[in-house]
Simulated scan of single mutants.
Amino acid sequence: MADRLPHEKGFHVSWDQIHRDSRALAWRLDGRGPNNGEWKAVVAITRGGMAPAMIVSRELGIRTVDTISVKSYDYQNQTKAEVLKSPDKDMMGDGEGILIVDDLVDTGKTLELVRQLYPKAHFATVYAKPKGEPMVDTFITGVSQDTWIFFPWDMALQYVEPYRGND
Rank of each mutant, 00 (worst) to 15 (best):
V70N: 06
G31A: 06
Q78L: 08
I149N: 05
D137Q: 12
T147N: 10
A26R: 00
K71I: 14
Y159N: 13
T125D: 00
I98H: 06
A41T: 07
G165L: 13
K85D: 09
A2M: 14
A81T: 06
R47F: 10
I18P: 05
S22P: 02
A24E: 04
P6H: 12
I140R: 09
R28I: 02
K109T: 15
Q78E: 14
W15M: 05
D88L: 10
V70Y: 09
D94V: 12
A26P: 10
N77R: 12
D137I: 13
D74Y: 15
P152R: 03
L29N: 01
V70W: 08
S72G: 13
Y159I: 05
P6A: 08
T107V: 03
R58N: 13
R47K: 14
I62W: 14
V114Y: 02
G48S: 07
P162R: 04
W15E: 01
R23N: 09
K40N: 05
T141I: 12
E59K: 04
D103E: 13
W39I: 02
G132R: 08
D3M: 11
R58D: 14
L25P: 00
A24Q: 03
F150R: 03
K120A: 09
K131N: 07
D167T: 15
P6T: 04
W148V: 05
R115V: 09
S57F: 05
M155H: 09
Y75D: 15
P34C: 12
Y118M: 11
Y118P: 00
A128F: 04
P6G: 02
G61H: 12
S22G: 15
D16I: 04
E96D: 07
V126F: 15
G33I: 09
G31R: 04
K89M: 11
